[in-house]
Amino acid sequence: MNWVELLLYLFAVAVFPGFVFLSLLGTFTEWIERKVAARAQNRMGPTYVGPMGLLQPIADILKLLWAKELVISRGFSWRVTLFLVSTGVMALSASTLLMPISPIRLSTPLDSLVLVYVLFYSTLGFLAIGFSSPSPFGVVGSSRMLSIVCVVEPAAAISIYAISAALTGMGTASVSEAMTAQVGLQQSPALVLGGVSLFLVMMAKSLLKPFDIPEAETEVAGGVVADVGGPLLGMFRILHDMEAAFLALLLTLLVLRGPYPFSYADPLGWVLIGVKFVLVVLAATTLSASLGRLRIEQGVALLGKHSLLASIAALGAAALNYYVVA
């Protein structure tokens, strides 16, 4: 890796499609979510900052980032928690380099599994923020989050691997190449099942409605961040929005085939990516706005049945296609 490549790599991680781009996309995702939830409840939603309140989430986060840090005298070190959350943010930023929208693409066999393990840093940030707060609500939120994560993480891993394997071969299973691979009819079962699983994973990880169980009983905000404020809360909002945007983007590019029927070289294809992304987010938020919250064991069981089992079924379909049909 020479220094030009290194600079390009750093640019990609820091600006596009990494930190800057993904965090802006994340705030846009949050704006859609807030707007849809507001309209469903006959409210206006954000209107104040920017056209149609589009910049409201950014303003919220900046306000938090520049606020005074509130330190609870006997809690866990907030600097370490801040580091963990930031690590999650940067892990998400780095992972975007697997996507075809990146100027440099890293692609290896089995990068689907590497992606899942790297993304675990963002989950760790989520968990750390609740566990580290001295408030019982934060700890309860994180422990519920942990129960969900134990089902959602393997489901995400298996479905991403299964889709990649169905499209690029069992031994290759490159998520990066799967995003630009050709899809035949025989690969579609794995794609559909994996897509269903990934969609539920996205809803659970973005703490959308039936799965916002960490928020239950705290009724303040975000469950795990019940007693967190200031820059730490700002970073958490960035992490949460980026994760939601990342998973929606992954769904768009991997399951909904990105610019299909156009190509990445075609400007129309990029427009189509945008449209599909908005559709994914709209679908998730509409579903969220029209459903009630589940109890923790119901939520985990539902995710286990419809996300984990769907992902295992996708793996089975991919294996069947690879070893028997092809």
Partner: peptide, 10 residues
């Protein structure tokens, strides 16, 4: 994966 035992991944 190379040995064809994909279920072990799960």
């Amino acid at each position: 994966v190379d040995a064809g035992q994909v279920w072990m991944v799960a």
